[in-house]
Design a protein around this nucleic acid. Structure first.
Lengths: 188, 188
DNA sequence: TTGAGACTTGACTAATCGGTCAAATTTTGT
DNA sequence: ACAAAATTTGACCGATTAGTCAAGTCTCAA
């Protein structure tokens, strides 16, 4: 059952993803959630706290399963990772990447957003690094500076999503990913 | 002499760069510019037209000289490009990249912003492609798909700036650029 | 010198913003 | 059954938003 709080979290994330935090209207969120204002203030102290909760909880939930295979697999780490990268069905090139969007909009404006996004982006990098470390461990890849390579990969992915958003052409994302994989493959 | 219009353009760009378009307050822009509201509406139809003008004019002006060497040089194109990439003094890692910021915030919200940013981001890619084509022409590089490589480079640069903004660590940008140059070097 | 157009001033408007709160209702534990 | 707690309702608030406009000043050409 979707609780009132759930409705608010979902509507807030969607509204913030679409219009940014500053562009997100509380009235629109409430209308979308079908929740009254006073009810919302029962669950959250203010708009900002609700948005921070929506971002953190939604992204954590999304990533919970996404990288599970790193712990369960015993081989084929890179193949699975490449498959993930190529899967455009999980991407929304119109709105872009939720993480990147909020970093861009809020990191230099608000300390609480900055702290949260630093943690989320850091987790993204850590997840990629874990894949690379596993690949090296099972000799699918030569040892290298995985921290740096993970940084490079995350940067390029975010840039690829941005390029597709800017051009309105999903193929741009695919092209960048191809070149990125080529780059990783040279390290095997 | 800085005209009233200049003051408005500069203040608007700075305010939009700092707080985004939606977060930019007209009152703050006017205060920063030292211009009264009615005066502003003499030069611009509304906030949006002023912001679009500020973005286009400021970025065009910035890029006017930046890639001039591509037409004047006869060799050393890649070296000059690498030098540019390494120059962190032109970067503002707190606020990020103005182009990326506005693409992220506005491309999926407003058609006019979308059109403008598509053009600006496209010009960025074209500039990088021109460098690569020149490098190939004078045999500093093996022939390759420069459209695709330019897309990859611009994506990675934007991603690098974002990474530095997210972490608050300029070194992240440097690390990504190093790896990017390594990638380009393999194509020589 | 004078009139016309460019530019400036700042008070004003309507709409929307996030936020408050007391009262009503529903849910829960005993 | 009853009381206490959790939740919901929706009217209301002051502040801020972008935008309007009539009156005033300045510049410059005839």
């Amino acid at each position: 059952m979707e609780t009132t709080r759930d409705k608010l979290i979902n509507a807030t994330f969607d509204e913030v993803f679409s219009h940014g935090y500053q562009g997100a209207s509380l009235a629109d969120i409430l209308a979308k959630a079908g929740v009254h204002k006073g009810s919302m203030y029962h669950f959250f102290a203010n708009k900002k706290e609700m948005a921070l909760a929506a971002i953190e909880e939604t992204i954590l939930k999304k990533n919970a399963d996404k990288y599970r295979y790193v712990e369960t697999y015993t081989s084929g780490f890179l193949e699975e990772f490449y498959k993930q990268l190529h899967d455009t069905s999980v991407r929304d090139f119109k709105r872009g990447c939720p993480i990147a969007n909020i970093v861009q909009e809020m990191s230099n404006i608000d300390e609480d957003f900055n702290t949260l996004m630093k943690s989320i982006y850091g987790a993204f990098r850590a997840n990629i690094k874990a894949i690379l470390d596993k690949a090296i461990e099972v000799k699918e890849m030569k040892p290298c500076d995985t921290t740096k390579l993970a940084l490079f990969i995350t940067s390029t992915i975010e840039g690829a999503i941005l390029a597709a958003k800017a051009s309105g052409n999903a193929q741009d994302y695919v092209d960048v990913i191809e070149e990125l994989i080529e780059h990783i493959e040279r390290k095997r």
